[in-house]
Simulated assay, not measured.
Amino acid sequence: MNRSELGAALRALRQASGTEAKTVARSSVMSASKLSKIETGKLSPSADDVDRILTSIGVSDEVKAEYMEAARAVATEATAWRLIQRAGLHKAQKQLQAVEADMDLLRVFQPALVPGLLQTPEYMRAILSRHDDLTEETVRRTMSARLERQEVLYDEDKTLRFVITEPVLRWLIVPTPIMAGQLDRLISLTRLPNIDLRVVPLAGAQRDIPNHAFVVRDDRSVSVETVHAKVVVTDPRDVALYVAKFDGFAEHALSGEALKPFLEGIRDDLVRQRESR
């Protein structure tokens, strides 16, 4: 089944259910225009898009399993950041919030920045404000939506695993006081029972290369962040590659009782460096 055939099948299922397109689009957290492009084969849907559409239509578990398998087979979706920005960064955050509400297990690997779910408002603003093409209103709305997403951190029914590399905590892309506050935030989050935060230290031999950031939601999909685009991978064979890479870094990262003094040491180093200038 190719993209056009999948879109036509989804449209036929919707029409057979008697559900209006605008109703399906609304409950699927997408615009009516996007749903129309999916149904006409002009846009390849992600597995999450198909999941939400089928849930909205109310198909049986058997039918849903069949079409989800087809969706994963055809969907490796790349969306340029400029298009995501044009549609609204705050809307992208809302879509992520909807996806995260349905998941049980989140794995985040980040070698460049503190993951969005763990960011303080100050860190968040500093990162977003670096982009000259973002207006103050865009920054404000995106921050508000991302902070709403952070409510998932306190849902003990979900397991949230984060692996970051030590340079993330030392790379002063934000002012030192903001980074120090961010480190305090990370220390406090390690106390939450459903959060597993780990840091890959620079000291010692490494067994893998931290190519780029990626997010694995359950074992269903992977979001990969490149310079120009966000790529969503849903083929189970490819998802397994990312899970293995995540587990490899997690195995050799600091966690638990060893992590707190490590984070406190980096924070204190940053503060001392600032005071000595």
Rank of each mutant, 00 (worst) to 15 (best):
A98N: 01
A126R: 06
H131W: 10
R86G: 02
F109T: 01
K64I: 08
T142P: 04
R141M: 13
R86H: 01
V74S: 00
Q110M: 14
R52H: 08
D51N: 09
V63Q: 12
V108E: 07
L118S: 05
L118M: 14
K94G: 04
Q93P: 00
A65Y: 06
G116E: 03
T142R: 07
Q119R: 12
R130Y: 04
Q95H: 05
A87S: 13
R86A: 08
F109I: 05
D61H: 14
D133P: 00
E100T: 05
P115Q: 02
D132Y: 11
L117V: 03
A98E: 06
A101K: 13
G88C: 14
A78I: 03
Y123T: 04
T120W: 06
Q110F: 11
R141P: 01
M124H: 15
V114G: 07
P45R: 11
V139D: 04
S60E: 13
L96R: 12
Q110V: 05
D48C: 05
A78Q: 08
A126C: 01
A101T: 12
D61V: 15
F109W: 01
Q95K: 14
A47T: 03
R130M: 09
G116Y: 03
A112N: 04
D49F: 11
E69D: 14
S129Y: 04
G58V: 05
A70F: 08
F109G: 05
D104N: 15
A98F: 01
P111V: 01
Y123C: 01
T120V: 10
L128Q: 08
R52L: 08
A126L: 00
R141F: 09
D133E: 07
T79V: 12
L83E: 04
L118F: 13
T142N: 05
L83Q: 06
E62V: 14
R72Y: 10
S60L: 12
V108N: 08
R141E: 14
Y123S: 02
I53A: 13
I53Y: 05
I84N: 13
T55N: 09
G116C: 03
V114K: 04
V59S: 12
L54C: 02
K64M: 13
V139R: 09
V139P: 06
K64V: 10
H131M: 05
K64A: 13
A71C: 11
R52Y: 06
V139M: 09
T76H: 05
K91L: 10
R140K: 12
T142D: 01
T138K: 01
A80S: 13
I127F: 06
I127G: 03
